[in-house]
Design a protein around this nucleic acid. Structure first.
Length: 770
RNA sequence: GGGCAGGUGGCGGAGUGGUAUACGCGGAGGGCUUAAACCCCUCUGGCCGUAAGGCCUCGUGGGUUCGAAUCCCACCCUGCCCACCA
């Protein structure tokens, strides 16, 4: 017997929309609960079943919280700037604005068809000028605080996308966007000094509740290490008469006595000066090759160590021994000082290098760190792996950076009242051949006047990365239509921090770190009330294709939610995605699994047809089942064990299905538990039998009913199961022992044996040790 | 190479010191039906046995324990993340 999901789901979605049933109150006596899911990038292909897993699971929590009397904020919006839309625009000759509008319409329709309880009145879109006005304003706060600076740096350059990448986006030497290899290129870029916050981003992890693996990954990414900088001086003056020194960074100053050579990164500024004439040719050839190597190649640890001698020596300041200076690409210019003291005895890489080039390996005693640092006049320093954030993109589809170049006043901020700096319409979206943004070729955009002196000036033509808009969207939800401020202080104070935040593991070191930093900066300047934006962070596992691989358009194994909604309904899809496996872990899609969940919902419908009247005597066994279900489902939702919560609901319905009669009260309790998982069906049945108004409380279990009167106790002999007995749970050992011995089966095993010990665990088992 | 998470029936997975395989899928048999679908009932880890019952089983091998999928040690394998960070 199948229920009509189409009419039921449509009816309730319309009703919720009309009533604005999920609108959060900015002023309320209720306790607030801010429940956040990462907002989607509205791609042309529509919603992915992976989105559904995250949104449906958190919808369950949001709905349960509302029933529990919380004032719940569960918002949604669009993270719409970025390359996929721009590349699609280039390919099709359409405007990114039009493509984005179309994609968001598709996503909105699909999300509404899932019956998710988002507060649609707070929808935000990062490409809306009313939104990016504030992204630009926040960038200017960084600029005014001296945290945004333009620097000529070696950047990761993707030759295919013609775009500079942050280190985080170029991990492993591969472009985060297109998967192609990344090159090094020198470029003037806007940078944001996230490293100034490295220590706080690390230590404040102690104040938040993140999944342990998320916390660990952030710690590793920030990569704090304590060490010392020590100068190795040249023994004699160079030809110019200057005395040179190499400053090395080491985390092991105590091993300095065993430092038998020094290594510079090929990009180190002293390479030129230290190379003697007879080694110049060799050194220059090596440096040229090293520069061409991608990070990927240099990062390949299995690769044979390479290097070259400069011809110079410096003095180990601890023991005054002369040590040779080498150049090798296993030393990175971007970490520490770009120079190391090599201690083959204590470092595997140094050892491999020393062995290959016949450098001395000496075993010498360790020295106390403080003693070394004092003797060699070094200084203790803390270094981080974290790099500053490359904030410029030579691309069209992003927020224009609101700065003006004036020859007299250098970089000048666009005044607040002139924000937003609107993204102009252009003919072509491709970056220019020299890699500049398409905005650079629009004279009417570029040419302006200096806000300070009024003389002719030029606008910055780079745009921001799409991590900009997503770094503060959770703040805008709080006051989405405010024209005077990004959000009012009162409302921020009411809602922040986010109580629970869910997203993918792939955003742990990008979005999550950036947005924490961004929020901390705003906090330091008095714009937001909390130092940390998210009190608790969780992550969901990928929904894989049924063959266990990632779903991808190119492989044609993408499951379209529209087809599922049509055939099985929103409740079935939502519940199946919660049932398919543990929330945090990747799980393959299974069409059969979906059918199983739909059968369960049909069974709920069938049970409704046998609901008795209120004069029926109580079926106490079924009462017990219902109250156990209340207990388990409640705790499972809190622990985000949605899969076992669904299993428990299934058990309950199976019991109701088998029972001769199901009372109104029993069924009502069950429907309340079902509501956060399958809100349409539960609402429909609640309305026909009871009232949807009854959804203003979450069922409480009766502690006496969740305890069984009689339990099955396992009886073991030497730890092996030999039988079971039915007994009261509170029975003491002697009762259980007597009863067990009466069992013929058990008596046989104990016959003629000397019982050394009896172990009794009340409610669990009794074990005879013979 | 390092870190993290894992390895349980034919499949997705429950169970983290006390009856291994909850729940779902799939499969077998039966019922309903003119027939099929839906639905309902029973069975469903392996081996031995007519049965009662016994033995084996949670990647592999050891250990701790009255008792181990669960704790410890070693090894093998898979996934994810990081990867020459001095």
């Amino acid at each position: 017997m199948s229920y009509n999901h189409k009419s039921i789901e449509k009816k309730w979605q319309e009703r919720w929309e009309k009533k604005e049933a999920f609108r959060a109150d900015d002023v309320s006596d209720k306790k607030k609960f801010y429940c956040l899911v990462e907002f989607p990038y509205p791609s042309g292909s529509g919603l992915h079943v992976g989105h559904v897993r995250s949104y449906a699971s958190f919808d369950t929590i949001a709905r349960k919280r509302r029933m529990q009397g919380f004032n719940v904020l569960y918002p949604i919006g669009w993270d719409a700037f970025g390359l996929p839309t721009e590349n699609y625009a280039i390919k099709t000759g359409r405007k990114p604005q039009d493509i984005t509008l179309e994609s968001t319409q598709t996503f909105r329709r699909q999300l509404k068809a899932l019956g998710l309880s988002f507060d649609w009145s707070r929808e935000v879109n990062t490409t809306d000028p009313e939104y990016y006005k504030w992204t630009q304003w926040m960038f200017l706060q960084f600029f005014k605080a001296g945290l945004a600076y333009k620097a000529k740096t070696l950047i990761n350059w993707c030759p295919k996308d013609k775009i500079g990448l942050a280190n985080e986006e170029a991990a492993g030497g591969v472009c985060d966007r297109c998967g192609g290899p990344v090159e090094k290129r020198e470029k003037e870029q806007w940078m944001i000094a996230i490293t100034k916050y490295a220590d706080r981003l690390l230590s404040d992890l102690d104040t938040v509740n993140y999944l342990p693996k998320i916390k660990k990954q952030q710690q590793d990414w920030i990569g704090k290490s304590e060490g010392a900088e020590i100068d190795f001086w040249m023994g004699s003056r160079m030809g110019s008469g200057r005395l040179l020194c190499i400053r090395v960074f080491t985390t092991r100053p105590d091993t300095i006595d065993g430092a038998t050579y020094v290594v510079l990164a090929p990009e180190h500024p002293l390479v030129e000066l230290l190379t003697t004439d007879e080694h110049r040719e060799e050194v220059e050839a090596y440096v040229a090759i090293a520069k061409k190597r991608t990070e990927m190649e240099r990062g390949d640890e299995s690769r044979e160590k390479t290097g070259v001698f400069t011809g110079s020596t410096v003095v180990n300041p601890f023991n005054s021994e002369a040590v040779p200076v080498w150049i090798a690409d296993y030393v990175l210019s971007t970490y520490g000082t770009g120079a190391i003291m090599a201690v083959p005895q204590h470092d595997e890489r140094d050892r491999a290098f020393a062995e290959k080039f016949g450098l001395p390996i000496v075993d010498r005693p360790l020295v106390a760190i403080d003693e070394v640092v004092a003797k060699v006049k070094g200084n203790k320093v803390t270094r981080y792996k974290l790099r500053d954030w490359v904030f410029s993109r030579q691309r069209y589809w992003g927020e224009p950076i609101p700065l003006v170049w004036c020859d007299e006043h250098k970089w000048v901020a666009v005044p607040d009242e002139q924000l937003p700096v609107m993204l102009p319409e252009v003919e072509k979206y491709e970056p220019t051949d020299d890699g500049e943004s398409p905005l650079a070729s629009i004279a009417s955009f570029v040419n302006t006047t200096c806000p300070t002196c009024g003389k002719p000036a030029k606008r910055e033509t780079d745009t921001m990365p799409n991590w900009a808009g997503s770094s503060w969207y959770f703040l805008r939800y709080i006051d989405a239509h405010n024209k005077e401020q990004f959000a009012s202080a009162d409302k921020l104070k009411h809602w922040m921090p986010v109580d629970l935040y869910n997203g993918g593991m792939e955003h742990t070191t990008l979005h999550l770190l950036y947005s924490r930093f961004w929020n901390k900066f705003l906090f330091d300047h008095g714009f937001v009330p909390t130092s940390e934006p998210y009190a608790r962070r969780h992550s969901h596992g990928l929904v894989l294709s049924d063959d266990g691989t990632k779903m991808s358009k190119s492989k044609g194994n993408v499951v379209n939610p529209d087809d599922i909604l049509e055939q099985y309904g929103a409740d079935a899809l939502r519940m199946y995605e919660m049932f398919m496996g543990p929330f945090e872990e990747p799980v393959p899609w299974s069409a059969n699994g979906l059918i199983g969940v739909r059968r369960f919902l049909d069974k709920v419908w069938m049970v409704s047809e046998k609901i008795g009247d209120s004069t029926m005597p109580r079926n106490e066994n079924l009462d017990r089942v219902v109250h156990k279900t209340i207990k388990k489902v409640s705790s499972d939702i809190e622990a985000m064990k949605f899969n076992t919560a669904v299993a428990e609901l299934m058990k309950c319905v199976n019991a109701m299905h088998e029972a001769h009669e199901v009372s109104r009260n029993q069924f009502e309790l069950f429907l309340k538990l079902l509501f956060p998982f399958a809100p349409h069906l539960a609402s429909e049945l609640l309305e026909s039998f009871f009232s949807v108004d009854s959804l203003n409380d979450w069922p409480q279990y009766d502690p006496t009913l969740v305890k069984d009167k009689v339990i099955t106790l396992a009886v073991q002999v030497n730890g092996k199961l030999r039988g079971t007995i039915e007994i009261a749970p509170e029975a003491d050992q002697s009762e259980a022992e007597t009863m067990a011995r009466e069992q013929e089966q058990i008596a046989r095993w104990l016959d003629g044996q000397e019982i050394k010990k009896v172990v009794y665990v009340s409610g669990r088992m009794i074990n005879f040790v013979v």
